[in-house]
Design a protein around this nucleic acid. Structure first.
Length: 641
RNA sequence: GCCCAUGUAGCUCAGUCGGUAGAGCACAUCCUUGGUAAGGAUGAGGUCACCGGUUCGAAUCCGGUCAUGGGCUCCA
């Protein structure tokens, strides 16, 4: 009998007869981890534990702790769900059911939609099927045989998938009476799936194509241990509590009105105060870093968008034109043309470059009603935009400085973890090869010099240039893309922008678009959720509330108010005839960082009883001490509460 | 835009079988002057999203419209 050599993860080599199954090898191994192995990898691809090894192989193993293990685990949970759904709804047709971040889904065709009650029934059935510990068996067969099989079962979606598969051999996975066309791999048996939860049901188009029929999608998640599931569900509940749409209403920060239109944000005084603080900081930092602030109009002749190419490429996100003295105008969907026109208004020497124009530019883009979502997806928003015009050899330097700027700026809001993505040249693109190479290299070098690990999104760039995106991690561990730095090889050509080089000749300028926060609206939404509505002092719309225990404190409270107000502190005064506990409760609910409690004692001693949000009574101090303390806290932009 | 769900007082939500609308919070007035997360009483507040239909009668049943929410990239 033929022998093969199996190399184990530690490097140890063992000899086995050819055709040995991986699970057999696992049985010979020692350690607690052996039982946790869900899937194996041999020579670069993931395989079932029942996979027979025919040749010498390098083996590695994965458990739920690994991304690979998690995906297989959840993919098998999706199959368990599909099996249970077909038992309860025999008319349901199976389609696809992949693992996704934090869970899985499965799409079914069913003429009547699932109800929330159906979900718990399906869950129960899944428990039963898991308890039965059905072996999950892989079968390989020719495409033709598989087609006959699914034809008999009237699984037309599976037939459609089969049509598109190029290989001649396909694999089917069975558990009990349920069989699905699937590449795999899967867990050895349904009993390996320990704990799961079905979360929601939604419509989804077959193949994500809106011209195709609507399927019923069930989302769920699964874990190995009950505690892990609980942590995950708690996190979802916490995210719901922090939902910026709810907090925005409760804290009176912003609103959206049916009468005015979806996706159009109204910043209430408190929200506007926060925005002012962000904008003031933004302007100051931009001036410090050699940017020049500009303003550009909200509408522009259609001609400029014809030149820029937006009319051709982006008209589906632009609002339709309006006639102004027989000339078509458009509401601006981006700020670049305006900045370019400013640049072009006179000749530029290489000595002047780089020129950096920055604007908090409000733009309007058409988003379909169904995708609008609070502050995250809107129709009118303000980009913290800038366009950098520079010489080709200066791009790396510029990108590094933008990255460093972003990191420092975002740090002021308490974001310290970043992920970096570089998107490279797509198939269809404009610009010279050498420019793409130079620009892409500049992005990589810049990421390296900033000490940031990055991932390459091959072919993910815009048609007009490569880009680098920074994602921030919020307090719930969710990531958000904010900063984007994009090269543009399209607009410089189209608008013919140039500078005069040291030989006195006109040379094409490089153009970099960049935004640090992305959109103020969206960033505000992220901040609300990141802080759970409790803004740090430097951003808080109200810094301090002075409140009295009885009327005997009124006069002194008034004095404190006047002084703080005079010093530029956002302060308000609560002299109402209410109990102190009630006043504190209200201030806590409004998430005001500091409360000053003034009673008879304080009025007599001329001291302040200071209470910090969520922390309680901090004790007494003088007005001067308190003022110095909070002024320092504001100046430092402290985010620690 | 499409599928599903939801739409009742400023907010959060009850409302049974079709019989003309309810709570808590907020608001107003009064009483209460109190010590670190809700003192008490009284009152005002509604074209039940909108339009149409069925019915003697519609918040409730039916149809349509609008808005909001969950989704609509993850490829057997």
């Amino acid at each position: 009998m033929k022998k093969i050599t199996v190399t184990l993860p530690g490097g140890e080599k063992r000899s086995y007869p050819a055709g040995v199954k991986i699970c057999k090898i696992l049985q010979d191994l020692e350690g607690e981890w052996v039982e946790k192995v869900l899937v194996a990898k041999t020579d670069g691809h993931l395989v079932d534990l029942s996979y027979p090894l025919q040749e010498d192989s390098n083996l590695s193993f994965f458990t739920f702790e690994d991304e690979e293990g998690k995906e297989v685990y959840r993919h098998s949970t999706a199959h368990l769900m599909a099996q249970s759904v077909q038992q309860l709804f025999p008319e349901a047709k199976i389609t696809i059911g992949p693992p996704i971040e934090n869970g899985f889904y499965y799409d079914f065709y069913l003429s009547t939609p699932f109800t929330p009650e159906d979900l718990s029934k399906i869950e129960e059935r899944m428990q039963e099927n898991a308890r039965k510990n059905l072996p999950i068996i892989r079968q390989e067969m020719s495409k033709e045989t598989a087609k006959e099989y699914f034809k008999k079962r009237e699984e037309r979606y599976k037939l459609e998938i089969l049509e598109e598969i190029e290989e001649e051999q396909v694999s089917l996975y069975s558990q009990g009476e349920f069989t699905d066309l699937c590449r795999g791999p899967h867990l050895p048996s349904t009993g390996r799936i320990k704990t799961f939860k079905l979360l929601s049901v939604a419509g989804a188009y077959w193949r994500g194509d809106e011209r195709r029929e609507m399927l019923q999608r069930i989302y769920g998640t699964s874990f190995e241990r009950e505690e892990e599931l609980k942590i995950h569900l708690d996190r979802l509940a916490e995210a719901k509590r922090r939902d910026h749409r709810i907090l925005g209403k409760k804290l009176d920060l912003f609103s959206i009105h049916e009468e005015i239109g979806g996706g159009l944000i109204h910043w209430h005084p408190k929200g506007a105060m926060i925005r002012q603080r962000i904008e003031d900081f933004w302007r100051k930092e931009h001036l410090n870093r050699g940017y020049q602030l500009v303003f550009t109009p909200h509408i522009a002749s259609e001609e400029v968008y014809r030149i820029s190419g937006h009319l051709e490429n982006y008209s589906d996100l632009m609002y339709s034109s309006m006639e102004v003295e027989d000339r078509p105008f458009r509401v601006k969907p981006m700020n670049c043309p305006g900045h370019i026109m400013i640049y072009k208004s006179h000749l530029h020497s290489y000595r002047e470059l780089p020129i950096r124009y920055a604007e908090l530019g409000t733009v309007y883009r058409f988003e379909r009603s169904g995708v609008l979502h609070g502050l995250f997806r809107v129709r009118g928003f303000t980009i913290d935009d800038a366009h950098i015009f520079c010489q080709p050899q200066k791009v790396e330097e510029e990108v590094i400085s933008v990255i460093n700027f972003s990191l420092e700026f975002l740090k002021a809001f308490g974001f310290t973890e970043f992920a970096v993505y570089i998107a490279t040249r797509p198939e269809k693109c404009v610009g010279r090869e050498e420019d793409w190479v130079r620009a892409t290299k500049a992005l990589e070098e810049a990421a390296k010099k900033a000490g940031l690990p990055y991932k390459i999104d091959e072919g993910g760039g815009a048609f007009y240039g490569p880009k680098i995106d920074l994602k921030i991690m919020d307090s719930l561990g969710r990531s958000w893309q904010c900063t984007t730095i994009q090269f543009d090889f399209n607009l410089p050509e189209r608008f013919d922008i140039s500078f005069i080089n040291d030989e006195g000749k006109a040379e094409r300028s490089y153009l970099i678009h960049r935004a640090i926060l992305g959109s103020l609206e969206r960033f505000f939404g992220i901040l609300i959720e990141h802080y759970g509505g409790a803004f740090p002092l430097w951003l808080a719309p109200v810094h301090v509330r002075v409140m009295t225990v009885t009327q005997e404190g009124d006069k002194f409270a008034q004095e404190i108010y006047e002084r703080l107000h005079h010093e530029g502190i956002q302060v308000n005064l609560d002299l109402r005839n209410e109990k102190i506990g009630f006043k504190i409760r209200e201030a806590e609910e409004e998430k005001i960082p500091y409360m000053i409690v003034i009673g008879k004692k304080e009025a007599k001693e001329k001291t302040l009883s200071v209470r910090a949000r969520r922390k309680g009574d901090l004790g007494k101090r003088s007005l001067d001490e308190f003022l110095i303390q909070i002024q320092a806290e504001i100046a430092q932009k402290s985010v620690i509460d």
